[in-house]
Amino acid sequence: MKKKKINVAVTGLNAIDSPGPGVPVIRALKESKLFDVRIIGLSYEALEPGIYMHDIVDKTYQIPLPSAGKASLLERLKYINSVEKIDVIIPNFDAELYNFITLSDKLKKEMGINVFVPTLEQFEDRHKANLSDYGKKHKIKVPYGKVIFSTAEIPKLTKEFAYPLVVKGKFYDAYIAYSEQQAYTYFNKISAKWGLPIIIQEFVTGQEVNVTAIGDGKGNTIGAVPMRKQYITDKGKAWSGISIDDKNLLSMTQKLIRSTKWRGGMELEIIKTNKGDYYLLEINPRFPAWVYLAVGCGQNHPEALVQLALGKDVKPFKKYDIGKMFVRYSYDMIVSLKEFETISTLGEL
């Protein structure tokens, strides 16, 4: 079968110690059986490794940081599209999703670019700050949590929580605080980086398991692969993991996608307690950095996302390989100064 040639723009090229999902998403697309994909990288910083991975990224353009707003992103995408004729954009960062969600109609109508992302309601509902309500709404266990805006609220936490508790940022970062003093420290550390509010969450112990999944926006789960982290970095990221056969995790995922009519890629972060209870810790509204494991297990989620973005009907995956592992590695690329200069000054490479 002749593959269809398409141009896909991908963000999250930061294949670093806390990696973005861009590079694994690109690897998945390069292995597509349906598409012959030209990859346009969209980067925020000149040292994102994906920029220099010319074997998988055909061209990279810098785009404005999410904080610059929608208008400047739209202007930049207009220019990039005038050169590249983009068919699909896959945004891979939580922080940029708001802009892409709210621009998606405009991108389609004015530029013919397809974006398959959650609706604004789905995106807002699953925010960490709303997780308790989210759990009640969708009948899923979540650790008890509350949102705080000031360190003055920390001493009162003992009325509702016992130490240790978890201190979380609204987008990223989470620390276990074993004392009030540590809660102060982590509050200040996270709020300085990601702003307010800070989320305080009950500490639930058990085995951390994750699911990468994709919903078609109509309530159907197109694919889902559960994974258990085997090696975790000091940033809490999986450096190695294994696909597992956990029917409870799959049914929890399907239930959530059905109930929310989730649209796009997602990652569920779950704790399985020793009693066998499952607590939802977080929903990330995009593919995780380990999404390539799903490809290795026989479910190419990024390829399915592109199909959905192009308006095709996609049949749900029925199975995946159990006991497949991923082991991440670091690799030093040699880069010429000229390349660094080009992306830094011209904003494209």
Binding site: M227, R228, Q230, D245
Partner: peptide, 16 residues
Amino acid sequence: NIALSDSGFVFDPATG
């Protein structure tokens, strides 16, 4: 569902 190989490797697919 426990998998056991001839080399003595035991794998629990439900937990990894």
